[in-house]
């Protein structure tokens, strides 16, 4: 029997290292910088108190900012999705009894899970890339980055779910 906290801590370490050492080195036309580390935030247990979730989101963003030399951008985006996530889950899942631990393809149903991932990833990427650019200069480049990175991130996060659970 795996314990939930340890499982989550391991997941955080693994995805942050994957992000920093592997995914950040993927270079495709300068417009595709996917973020898979947010899957650790998406997979936090739904029973977690909201204040703890906010602090975890903040800390995760800060760690990513330190690695990416982009102080503030990841932090703001992660804190925002940590705030929105519980609201979104209660909106998506009517009978809360079904959902006890980690939201994933099994517990939510693959269609709902895909919507959940897509919405939060899109919000995260819109905030992140807007703050990284921090100007209207090159706005079309920022827009392209948002669209392509969001698409690839969603694919990678859903792929991770299939890989782990199927």
């Amino acid at each position: 029997m795996k314990s939930l906290p340890i499982e989550n801590i391991i997941r955080f370490v693994v995805v942050i290292l994957l992000q920093v050492l592997l995914v950040n080195n993927m270079q495709f036309l300068g417009i595709c910088n996917p973020c898979i580390y947010i899957l650790a935030l998406l997979a936090l247990p739904v029973t977690l108190p909201r204040w703890a979730e906010l602090l975890i989101g903040f800390a995760t963003g800060l760690v990513m900012d330190i690695f990416c030399d982009s102080l503030g951008a990841h932090t703001a985006a992660c804190t925002l999705i940590s705030y929105i996530r519980p609201l979104l889950i209660s909106r998506l899942v009517q009978d809360n009894d079904r959902l006890t631990g980690t939201p994933d393809g099994d517990s939510l149903g693959i269609a709902t899970y895909a919507r959940y991932v897509a919405l939060l990833t899109a919000i995260h990427h819109i905030v992140l890339f807007s703050l990284l650019a921090f100007s209207w200069h090159n706005w079309w480049l920022t827009l392209l980055q948002i669209v392509f990175s969001t698409a690839v991130s969603i694919a990678l996060i859903l792929g991770w779910d299939l890989l782990i659970h199927r």
């Binding site: 503030g72 932090t75 703001a76 921090f134």
Partner: peptide, 16 residues
């Protein structure tokens, strides 16, 4: 919760 959220976001934006 809202206040905590606003405080953390403010810290992030100030850092940025």
């Amino acid at each position: 919760i809202v206040l905590l959220f606003v405080a953390l976001e403010t810290v992030a934006i100030v850092l940025l």
